[in-house]
Design a protein around this nucleic acid. Structure first.
Lengths: 166, 166
DNA sequence: CATAATGTCAACAGATATAGTAGAGATTTT
DNA sequence: AAAATCTCTACTATATCTGTTGACATTATG
């Protein structure tokens, strides 16, 4: 059974990486189990069909970002570090996709020379800023708890979806 | 002199590729010269410090997308195919960043098996949809003419910016 | 204490995307 | 005929993405 990923119909400039999608799906599972306690990687991997060893990395990364807590050993696993209502997608995606660090260009003399943006670049940047604000306005509002709500609603709407072949 | 690119402070999930940025900057130049007529690649390359051979590809691509017209030969060059007011960033970015075609996964039998999204994926997708709509609401409104306006305003606000070294 | 079941950490690897470069050709003006 | 320009195709180097692998650390349980 192949692993599944969202792909088609992704807004231009707004593609979520596999890592990002896997992270969100794992967090939804952990959100659903927040009251019940700890969940093993393997459980999440099977339930969401995410490659287990890859998921290990992702969850570990989320832990170092302060989103998760873990316990090792036989009864080990992961849980959310905070209630799902307090984890926003904005914070998550910021952490997962990483802070874009501007790479300074080295000149021949070895000193860092930086070109200030020209007016065209500044104009483009100003539009991008509007776009970012619009995105964040949404992602700051949506939490893991909201995603879990949507999942619950979808589950009650539809029956059990089965694989199909074309 | 190094080529310049916007980079730091790019909204998460909303990075413009070099190609995309170069395209927009070239289009701004062509928008500013829409009345005057044709502009050579080299002029744009020098004015915006964009690698010339790379720019050739980009402009050619924009032409095949119907955004530009060209003339070869000695007095050759490019111009916008339509007035700058009629070219939206949404259309441009859609063309440049390319249509995301979902890649079907081949099963062992060689038949295409597609997994329908599970509820978690559907929930994520629904948020992405909201984000996309918010982005497009902005990018559908902003045209090349708008970018040129912003450039003009920036030019009148600030003096001539010179390179600096740190 | 031994063992098994977990998470942890670091390195590696193949595929794909990005950011160009290069060469040869076609068209137009002079 | 020559020069200037765009056009088309191919190539390359680097980075990023998507994982895999192996060794290790920790914990519960018998």
């Amino acid at each position: 059974m192949p692993f599944t990923r969202l792909d088609g119909n992704i807004p231009p400039g707004m593609k979520l990486s596999s890592k990002g999608e896997y992270a969100l799906r794992a967090l939804i599972v952990l959100g659903e189990n927040y009251e019940r306690g700890i969940v093993r990687i393997q459980t999440i991997s099977e339930q969401q069909r995410i490659p287990k060893r890859f998921l290990e990395q992702i969850l570990n990364d989320l832990k170092s970002g302060g989103f998760l807590e873990s316990r090792r050993g036989v009864a080990g696993g992961y849980r959310l570090a905070r209630p799902p209502e307090q984890i926003t997608l904005a914070a998550l995606i910021r952490h997962i996709e990483g802070a874009l660090v501007p790479t300074p260009v080295l000149s021949e003399q070895g000193r860092r020379t930086i070109q200030p943006p020209n007016e065209a670049q500044a104009a483009i940047r100003s539009v991008m800023k509007e776009v970012r604000e619009a995105i964040l306005e949404i992602l700051d509002r949506v939490t893991i708890a909201d995603l879990c709500d949507r999942v619950r609603r979808l589950r009650s709407e539809a029956g059990i979806a089965t694989d199909y072949v074309i």
